[in-house]
Amino acid sequence: MSEPSAQSQPLVEFREVSKRFGAGPLVLDQITLATRPGDFVSLIGPSGCGKSTLLRLIAGLTSVSSGTLTVDGLTPEAAAAELAFVFQEPTLLPWLTVAANIELPLSLRGILPAERVATRQRVLELVRLNPKASAYPRQLSGGQKMRVSIARALALSPKILLLDEPFGALDEMTREHLNEELLAIRERHAWTAFFVTHSVAEAVFLSNRVLVMSANPGHIHTEITIPFAYPRTEQTRLSRDYHDLVAKVSRILRSVETDTV
């Protein structure tokens, strides 16, 4: 289940998608991109190159200026039920307990209490936070809040998970730990991920495809395929090939960043 399948229909398909806000400058220029179910796509690039905008287009939070974008064959607006977004901030509601935070989107969708509770317990188990179910967000650490945020997204059983720098605010140790946890969850739940990050190591470790973007206007500069089989573990990080790929992506990223300055 975890290996991206080669022959099925694209799950997310960009065809010559461009985006500008109002009369502003072009933010995304002619993006063409197709993902297969099970892809883990990382987006990396200089600040302001349109990574968040690309995710927000898939999420239907903003719409394309030209070109076509389909999500599972539908418009992004129509495909809302298949998507979940994990923002850079944990975006938990501070007045609700961890359990209530996870159950809220389920109850807004009209899912009955018994099923809500079962789902909540299942996803909290995945991020190993069941003991914190009745805690309030302010009683959690930054990493724990982020795990709750991920659990809440997983509770919606999305086909596509959009993650915008979810671990950007965390320290290196916690981040590596959560990366492994995320991949472990992925072993059991096949979703397609779009993952924005500023960390090359993180992108290489998590993805099977890394897209390096350039800015002004935002464009996909290079795609690098990461061939390591899933499941990946701590061992993957220690391998020679991993380090070579990290070095390669870093080099490309640096050239992109010097070009745009």
Binding site: L61, L83, A84, F85, T91, P105
Partner: peptide, 8 residues
């Protein structure tokens, strides 16, 4: 949080 609710 408004964005989150828009997402839902």
């Amino acid at each position: 949080l408004v964005e989150l609710f828009a997402m839902w």
